[in-house]
Write a protein that binds this DNA or RNA. Structure first.
Lengths: 251, 251
DNA sequence: ACCTGAACACCGTTCAAGT
DNA sequence: ACCTGAACACCGTTCAAGT
């Protein structure tokens, strides 16, 4: 399912995984099929349930067969992260780097990553926390090609190298925090159904302010928050431009 | 080690764990000792290594003995998160809610959480990704008492309920993204030592901008970034105040 | 009251063996 | 060339039994 229409998408970015046998494409396994199936499995049952043996069963094969295509469970998870992040290449809304300037590009990039997080909420914590391959790989922008694309868009828009690097750090921090919290707020109350007679609702009596604001805090403002904070971030980035290229702020 | 000098710290916030036997305090186990030991173990060996059996050995006991004090591994991890977050209660720099106004309070709160993240980098991903008990519990501010404290500080400083809630959401997103990325940048290059003759350095030739900025991106700017972005966040929060309470911006 | 031994079902992973 | 069966070391968890 993922990684559509990008023949050598996984080839460009130094893949975490060895190549594996070339896709015989018809019957039989395939690294792409294994990884895609793993993503599917996590989307459906959650990361906790993913097991080499169960993934094998999901593919109609014994667990041991997977080791032909993946060095082990850890590498499988790395591959899952890679596949999900690579879905960005198939997103038509994100392509074409600089048709509308850097702000437009960063907007589309941010929204593309948000779509990925919302499409794979069970995978995203993995995207967020797997140790990156290099210190300058900052989740959720874990693909060398997108990092390159980001930095080129900024520098070619007039940002200094320092400013582009600072923008990259701010952008990744913003996305990581926002998206992780958005999906965490989503997944609550799902899971094993416990005693329905004990509502498990915490007693808020000792916390009067919290109790008063509780209905307010339970509202889902993720979409608006995302737009507004992204807008604010872009405005703050604008200040990193050399003064000549910075449009006068209306006030 | 954690949870020092706060006798009933874990009593106020609805604990995830049942009480367990009262601490006989001398020899023998104790829920506090089990959780504290787990934190210690993760700090030392990483989350991946933590096993009921190994934690038992670490405490000089068989794994099965732990089940007297903890319902299972999942609850143990919840307890670990709770213990680490509760360290905030022992931080003398964070206490006293509003001596210097809300900005000063949020500064100290943010720095306190940053100290925790840096002190327990192996635990922090757990703080970030464990499913919260309620939708309005937003990591890394996972303690009802601190959420209450935050909201009270804001509302009593003139923020409307809506503004306080928005500030809470923005503050938690900021901290989560920043701290998670700071510790992720720290932990890289540690772990199993592979082939030292193959430096595993990715070939950056296809990514010229990245290659040019690589030394810049490898610098550790976490501390400065944190200060500056926190400052910017607080300034943005100021705009949520009703105009009368908002000091005139200089310039 | 607290801990242990033995047992159960299930992991990840290796490897010789099948086809 | 690709998959499997059997095996190994190790999990989390239960429970009757020890002290």
């Amino acid at each position: 399912m993922p990684d559509r229409d990008t023949p050598q998408a996984r080839r460009g970015a130094a893949s975490v995984l060895p190549a594996g046998p070339p896709g015989s494409d018809r019957a039989g396994l395939d690294q792409r099929r294994v990884l895609g199936s793993a993503v599917e499995f996590i989307d459906e049952h959650g990361l906790r349930e993913l097991t080499m043996r169960r993934l094998g069963a999901h593919l109609g094969v014994e667990a041991m067969a997977l080791y032909r295509y993946v060095p082990g469970r850890e590498a499988l998870l790395d591959g899952v992260v890679e596949v999900v992040v690579d879905e960005l290449y198939g997103d038509p809304d994100v392509h074409l780097e600089a048709t509308g300037g850097w702000q437009d590009y960063l907007q589309r990039l941010a929204h593309g990553l948000r779509r990925i997080a919302l499409a794979h909420p069970e995978v995203f914590p993995l995207v967020a926390t797997r140790p990156p391959a290099a210190p300058w790989v900052r989740p959720p922008l874990r693909s060398l090609r997108w990092i390159e694309s980001f930095l080129r868009a900024m520098t070619s828009s007039g940002f200094s190298d320092d400013a582009a690097a600072a923008a990259y750090r701010a952008f990744s921090s913003f996305l990581l925090g926002y998206l992780l919290l958005e999906i965490s707020g989503k997944g609550v109350e799902t899971g094993p159904v416990d005693e329905p007679d004990v509502p498990a609702t915490t007693d808020l009596a000792p916390y009067p302010t919290l109790r008063r604001l509780e209905p307010l805090l339970s509202q889902d403002r993720a979409a608006e928050d995302f737009e507004l904070s992204l807008e604010a971030l872009l405005e703050r980035m604008e200040l990193l431009l050399p003064p000549r290229r910075r449009p006068r702020r209306k006030s």
